[in-house]
Amino acid sequence: MKGMARNPSLTVGTAIVAMLLLVAALGPLAARSDPTAINLAESLARPGIGHPFGCDALGRDVFARVMYGARLSLGVSLSVVALSLVVGSLVGAIAGLAGGWIDETIMRAVDIVLAFPGILLAIALAAILGPGIVDLIVALSAMGWTTYARLVRGELLSLRERDYVQAAHVLGASPSRVVIRHLLPAVAGPMAVQATFGVGGIVAAEAALSFLGLGAMPPTPSWGNMLDAGRAFMLVAPYLTMAPGIAIGVTILGFNLLGDGLAQLAGTRS
């Protein structure tokens, strides 16, 4: 408990993330109305009793949609971060450990993907794969993995030169052992920071992709498609964009604090 007090970021971050996960799991119970039920008579209804965040253009309850949207937005973000992280780390580790032409080839491939405008990749994937959650995760991961690959490789290269790793190597430790014992903890901090930022970036990217017709299939609510649908009514019904906007903000805040806390934790351990 003493650690808790010294690491408020971790405490608050964990609390927010736990709350978000709880909302995602139980939100449907909290929201009394069906997020996909239209009621044209209440199109763009202002916030009030019954509809704390008002209604969208089709008269759907924005509160219910934000609650349900948590499930999708968090699910997609976490899946994309996990997929990008695993793929990126593996590729980065292979490049960093193998060196030579393998490293060279992999890093050129990373350069190509990084240099390719992400939005075009998304448009193309949207048209080729079609809409849907799985395709959305694939498209976002296709853009996201490179950062992790670069990060892991960079850390590997710089750590390889450090004395204790050299020593472990000389002592006959196998490369995989070196990676697990020394390199992984060292990479964990920057990775956690990157991953938590990733969650925010992905929630925002999901909104941009909704705009292009890729993303959650209607009528499934996601914060991204809510933000996009509300954009046309920013002048008359700002609550349509504010509700998902705040949800996105809180999510990013929570994950950032969690990331900070984790980084601090990793820092004190090593």
Binding site: T36, I38, L58, P218, P219, A232
Partner: peptide
Amino acid sequence: PEGGRLAEVIQAMLRRVGIRVEIRSN
């Protein structure tokens, strides 16, 4: 934007009679 809203209205109305509509916008 208006095409999307119309598609969602039609989707919701057809769902009431037991037709699930998958929306594709391009």
